[in-house]
Design a binder for these strands. Structure first.
Lengths: 198, 198
DNA sequence: CTCGTAAGTAAATAAACATTTACTTATATT
DNA sequence: AATATAAGTAAATGTTTATTTACTTACGAG
């Protein structure tokens, strides 16, 4: 039996993310992707059932899975609260700024009904994405360090600003100079922490 | 000369937003839209140059313009800081929860390169969207009420959480009960304010 | 009242689309 | 070395796409 060529699989995923980031999800076609990845259209269908399957796997495995791994490096649920949040912000910024293509698909996950649904189902079925972070918040709630909120609310308060800031980071071509610096980012992280402490 | 039928124009816009919210921007086609709006494809091309023109006008006029108007009602730049931010949060929540279709396209504005670019250009050319809010922040910076940051950073810290919270509000079908209540929202708003005060 | 004109329609066009068919290739096992 | 088998390809399928063509309709100005 001829073995799968993993380079081809990776090429398909990498080029797909590139097309989505540059032309938009609404302009990704299977034929365009095949041509750009130097592969026959049929090859994509060996690895993925259809276009929706490709998009969902791209989103959950290639993007969300990799992001989860990156954000959790050197993080532990029993870190001191401010230190833990700062580490998560640092990791998020490091990862996203070096993976703009993944960042764009991550944003599409908040708009596209297909990806939105896929995320919810994956989150329900496989327990939880970002479980160590949930544990971290749980510990700090029971120790009366932070205000008591559902996880979804904590997530919004602690992490949604950094996504907007990363967006600004990438938009700086349209401005005279970069406004999102490490220093600003740290100050923002501290503001967010201050807001949520008891 | 036969006058434009404004009902048809509004039907096109309303149905377009509906399709985008339910099936995704990537599944909106001109023919599908024409059929659903009970209109000939040609009629859409009388009002819009092409598909991109339709999407950009839908985004800037129908969605962003209406949102700006809604968020600024009963808001004034010289309100006391906490009071002003609370009013902006209230208005945002009121408007978005009653206009889910607009909310989805607003989210696409953060992913789709086409809409992203359109927003930036509109923001540069017509001065500024949300100018009264910029003024409000300016006043409160010079009065040493809040930390000094660029506007983009203030926007991320003050308003990105509420978009995530509105998303959670709409996701409640997938959960036993609604977690985003007026009470939680107010507490979140207060957390965000606390973080940014000097 | 009628007529010029832009709004509107139904049907057509060519290109692009997702997916498949029919075939070839590479290799792990025998 | 031969072969069974899944990976891979090029070209074709029928459908859907954005946009246009050729025609009809409604109405305000004369």
């Amino acid at each position: 039996m001829r073995p799968k060529n993993l380079e081809k699989e990776q090429a398909i995923r990498t080029i797909a993310l590139q097309i989505i980031a540059e032309e938009g999800l609404e302009n990704l076609s299977m034929q365009k992707l095949a041509k750009a990845a130097n592969v026959s259209p049929r090859t994509i269908y060996i690895k993925y059932q259809d276009k929706e399957d490709l998009l969902i796997k791209l989103f959950l495995e290639e993007v969300l899975g990799a992001y989860e791994k990156a954000i959790l490096t050197q993080f532990s649920p029993d870190m001191e609260f401010a230190k833990g949040v700062k580490k998560l912000w640092q990791n998020t910024f490091q990862y996203l700024k070096n993976n703009r293509h993944s960042f764009v698909l991550l944003q599409y996950g908040k708009s596209s009904p297909l990806l939105n649904k896929a995320f919810q189902q994956a989150n329900i079925i496989e327990g939880h994405f970002f479980a160590p972070i949930h544990h971290f918040l749980e510990i700090n709630m029971t120790n009366n360090i932070i205000k008591k909120f559902p996880h979804e609310v904590h997530r919004a308060l602690l992490f949604s600003p950094i996504f907007d800031l990363v967006n600004e980071y990438f938009d700086y071509q349209s401005r005279p100079k970069q406004i999102i610096t490490e220093k600003i980012l740290l100050e923002c992280c501290e503001a967010v922490i201050k807001g949520i402490l008891i």
